[in-house]
Design a protein around this nucleic acid. Structure first.
Lengths: 210, 210
DNA sequence: TCAACGACTAGAACCGCGTTCTGTCGTGGT
DNA sequence: ACCACGACAGAACGCGGTTCTAGTCGTTGA
């Protein structure tokens, strides 16, 4: 009688039609989040607007948290890809500075945070998802985390190996906390980005014009 | 007809009996949180166990979030006071090292995190409260934040003034994010405290044996 | 070709829980 | 003594995530 319920169907075993449905769900969330916070967003509406039956949505995602986490991961990856491309393009054109690690990281973060400023509900989404205890949601986060890891490591060359890890930890944390504080009204956006800059300069400043 | 509803009755205007009721509520929460996460905790139960009518609770706190935030602030203040006392006692006895800023901050944080390790549900509470959008809850947080600020500043003497602020920001953020990641199962406690140590050393290390 | 089966759909139903409401009572200020 | 107001116990409300029901359809395997 093992009620294994392996879970919301592993992505790898999905047929193309299923992947398509799954994508419609996450895309719809991304679309809707732009206009409402994660708590306003209702499963019923997502289902309806994506043209997937509510019950079916739950075959793909274990919970609202899981769906939101997946959608966020998706959005974040697109954003990061775009920003990374811009930053490295600017760097290779050698625009605007010689560019040490500090400068590069600043540029990267400033673009990312601006994206959040333009889409505050995604910042809310981050806050919402980060505290979710749904293990499937956490899994989604973990994947994303390691992507970010790679990205930041790449931006930090010229920085001693034993500095990289704690530097990333601290910067990521400052980004995350600041975002939440901003979104909850405990910090203005200006203060948030100033804080972030200060922290990056403090940590990475010494390695800049290597 | 101004429906001003000044709101959950300002603390300063409360009669002793009211303050007593308010305290019973927060104390009950603190008591209960030790045995269940914040989402398990129900307003009905808090009301019943504290001997305050449910409706009345809402005259003191605008929402569950607000109540939880107040309770957390209370617990955190007690904890910080205790830890601060221990740390400064140890320091004045000059035990265990000469103790620069880095060492002092490490000691402080390590005690604080151990308290969370012993009471994981308070870590969940932190995560829960930090993302609350209830303005009264945020207010509670803001008060707490400035207390912490003072505490950390005190621990960091010997550190250049322009380093103190970003250092605090980064350390606080690392603490907060790590706590959440731990509690959500994305980090082991050991990894969490190692990360925190690394960050503190990275940032404050240079100013240690002044 | 024809079951059998599994996944999909629309929508209703379920249910936990924060929040609000009702009716009553006790009390402190005038 | 009076009355307005806060407290009380408990019922009632409402929202929204999740689950269930019936019925449909496409694929598979004999």
């Amino acid at each position: 009688m093992a009620k294994e319920e392996t879970l919301p169907q592993p992505v790898s075993t999905m047929t193309p039609a299923q992947l398509e449905r799954r994508r419609r769900l996450t895309d719809t969330v991304i679309e809707m989040i732009d206009q409402m916070g994660p708590e306003q967003l209702q499963m019923r509406d997502v289902a309806e607007r994506s043209g997937v039956a509510l019950g079916t949505a739950y075959r793909y995602f274990s919970s609202k948290d899981h769906l939101l986490a997946a959608a966020w991961a998706d959005w974040q990856r697109r954003l990061t890809d775009r920003v990374r491309a811009e930053v490295s393009r600017d760097a290779s054109r050698n625009r605007s500075a010689p560019g040490g690690a500090c400068t590069r990281v600043q540029a990267f973060l400033s673009r990312e945070t601006r994206a959040f400023q333009r889409h505050p509900n995604f910042a809310r989404l981050v806050a919402y998802v980060e505290v979710s205890s749904d293990p499937f949601a956490s899994e989604e986060l973990a994947g994303l985390r390691s992507d970010n890891f790679a990205t930041l490591v790449a931006l930090m060359d010229g920085v001693p190996a034993d500095v990289v890890r704690p530097a990333m930890t601290a910067i990521n944390a400052t980004l995350g906390s600041g975002l939440t504080a901003w979104i909850c009204g405990r910090l203005t956006f200006a203060d948030f980005s100033r804080q972030l800059e200060e922290v990056v300069r403090l940590i990475l400043g010494p390695y800049d014009q290597a």
